[in-house]
């Protein structure tokens, strides 16, 4: 089976983020492979190691994002496409989905997979939008994948149990990071990744309509998470305290 895994470079979740005025300032030196995408890469590798096939990763991003492509290649993906952008653009989920849809329109594949969301915005929209644009059957939030009779069987985690969905090829699936523990590249993998093909594609060559490149949403501002208020301490006789707590739960916390 031919897998395309869409990956994204995101700031390390531990990197300091500051809000200055209307802008979000991130320490961009610490960029990593989106953890959900890493799970998608891992699962594609496991399935192709078992059933044969090929894993190619696709990334939209600036030059610096090449290091993230190298990581996916070092994990074991066979080749990569880098759709080059300057990194300064104002893209939202629909832009990413439109660019990817243009890229995939003349491609042959069995499965397109990606993380169910990316750690930078946590919007979780691109996968579904891409499936829509390509008119593919799809499933989201996979916690397990199997190949049975040339179909992709997706295990989805629900509130009360698990759901198995069989998707015909070609299809799209978005992956949870609960699915597996992505492998850490070995030294051999790292050294081999240098010699693997990484094709650079200019965004302009994909003929994405101008309208579709523009973000459909507007960020109107950022807010710091409010600081947690200190808890209340009650002292006195148990009966009095109980009455006071009950009253505050009603009037202040509004939970009764």
């Amino acid at each position: 089976m031919k897998f395309y895994v869409c990956i994204k470079q995101v700031p390390d979740v531990n990197a300091p983020i500051q809000i200055k005025g209307e802008e979000l300032i991130q320490d961009t030196n610490r960029m990593i492979l989106n953890a959900y995408d890493a799970s998608a890469v891992e699962e594609a590798l496991v399935l192709t190691e078992k059933h044969g096939g090929e894993v190619e990763v696709v990334l939209i991003g600036p030059d610096k994002a090449k290091e993230t492509i190298r990581k996916a290649l070092a994990m074991g993906a066979q080749k990569a496409t880098h759709i080059q952008t300057s990194g300064d653009e104002n893209y939202d989920s629909s832009t990413y989905a439109s660019i990817l849809a243009s890229f995939f329109k003349d491609k042959e594949y069995d499965v397109i997979s990606c993380g169910k969301q990316s750690q930078d915005t946590d919007a979780g929209l691109t996968g579904s939008m891409l499936a829509e644009l390509l008119n593919l059957p799809y499933a989201t939030n996979a916690v397990g994948l199997e190949i049975e009779d040339n179909q992709l069987v997706v295990k989805r985690q629900g509130d009360t149990g698990q759901e198995m969905i069989a998707l015909p090829s070609p299809c799209l699936v978005t992956c949870s990071n609960d699915m597996n523990e992505p492998r850490i590249p070995s030294l051999k993998g790292i050294m081999q990744s240098k010699r693997k093909p990484m094709e650079a594609v200019e965004l302009s060559s994909l003929d994405v309509e101008e309208d579709n490149l523009a973000a459909k949403t507007t960020v109107t501002g950022y807010q710091e998470k409010p600081e947690r208020e200190a808890g209340k301490k009650f002292e006195g006789e148990p009966d009095d305290i109980a009455a006071e707590v009950a009253q505050l739960l009603d009037t202040e916390a509004n939970v009764i």
Binding site: E67, I184, I190
Partner: peptide, 17 residues
């Protein structure tokens, strides 16, 4: 170099895990 960063980051991940 990119190789060196990748090696360092991979060993760091391995050490953490």
């Amino acid at each position: 170099s990119e190789d060196q960063q990748l090696i360092r980051d991979s060993v760091r991940d391995f050490a953490d895990r």
